[in-house]
Design a protein around this nucleic acid. Structure first.
Length: 305
DNA sequence: CGTGTTTGACCAGCGC
DNA sequence: GCGCTGGTCAAACACG
């Protein structure tokens, strides 16, 4: 779809932040989980927080995630779609500096982050493109209201049906593989060249019937080892990898990556939903890998509408 | 044959 | 109006 011109600004910020992130040298304060896709490690970067605390806290406290990203709890989250808008609300993380910059999420609040060779480094922006979408959707709303009387569309478009606002979450992963295994099955439906980037952007759709989730995968033009995965929407089904027995059957890297992404998405979605609607997730135990299995039953609940 | 990928065409929105 | 760009579609193709 169009209207992503604001996204160019976002992408610019995005890449700048990435560049600064990966140019930083390690210190303490960055939490991580090990294990990653395709045999590499995944580091989940959080600004000056301990991931264990994030997870533990998040299981018990809806403010944990925004705190983890250095967001003030007073105004960390702006749930769009509340202004009389229909459809699912958009989760937008206002990073709190008023500029829409991703600095707190990626800049680690002035702290550096460990990135080891051979490692895959992941960071998350819950609705990284929130601000752009806010504007875009306002426009779309206007267009929706104007309804297609003037549009000459060869293909029939749903009339009178408002597009639902899907939550979007961007993951930044350092990996040599473009399409990171995350436990879900995806069907590629498009690929486009990205402006100012030698790397194309791939479009994937969840293959599960009626599941609206899509994701975009592209590489950073500044650092070809960085893969930016943007998820849009929420799964209406269980993770196939989880359903197939248990994640214990998955190789550890896959397991942790999937669970990590699931976890963060879950958290973001949980933050996005009205409080207390979701069943409480079980407390996690970290960093014991084996205890990750305890997460599985909990995650079996998420993605449920 | 079912599933997934590739790829060119198409559409919509924006800026000039 | 035109060109550019992001996003999607769908036919052709590949593969197990």
């Amino acid at each position: 779809m169009s209207g992503y011109h604001e996204g160019e600004h976002f992408r610019s910020l995005f890449h700048d932040e990435l560049a600064s992130l990966f140019s930083q040298r390690p210190t303490d304060g960055a939490a991580c989980i090990s294990g990653g896709p395709s045999g590499s490690d995944t580091l989940a970067i959080f600004p000056a927080v301990n991931f264990t605390d994030v997870l533990r806290g998040s299981m018990m406290d809806n403010d944990a995630l925004p705190r983890a990203f250095g967001l003030s709890c007073s105004a960390p989250l702006d749930v769009l779609g509340s202004g009389g808008r229909t459809g699912s609300p958009e989760l937008m993380v206002d990073v709190g500096n008023g500029s829409g910059s991703l600095t707190p999420a990626f800049g680690c609040g002035g702290r550096a982050t460990t990135v080891t060779p051979n490692s895959s480094t992941s960071s998350l922006s819950a609705e990284a493109a929130g601000e752009e979408d806010a504007d875009r959707w306002k426009k779309e709303e206007q267009q929706d209201e104007e309804v297609d009387t003037s549009k000459k569309v060869s293909k029939p478009r749903k009339q009178g049906v408002r597009r639902e606002r899907e939550p979007r979450f961007a993951f930044v992963t350092e990996s040599e593989v473009d399409h990171l295994e995350d436990g879900y099955r995806w069907r590629k439906y498009g690929q486009k060249a990205v402006k100012n980037s030698p790397y194309p952007r791939s479009y994937y759709r969840c293959t599960t019937q009626k599941c609206p989730v899509k994701k975009k995968v592209e590489r950073s033009y500044q650092n070809s080892t960085i893969v930016i995965t943007t998820y849009e929407g929420r799964h209406t089904h269980l993770c196939p990898a989880t359903v197939r027995g248990s994640t214990l059957l998955l190789p550890p890297p896959l397991m942790s990556t999937s669970l990590f992404q699931d976890l963060v998405m879950q958290q973001a979605q949980q933050l996005n939903s009205t409080a207390n609607q979701m069943p409480p997730l079980r407390q996690l135990e970290f960093p014991h890998h084996g205890l990750l299995q305890d997460m599985v039953p909990s995650f079996a609940h998420h993605g449920q509408p």
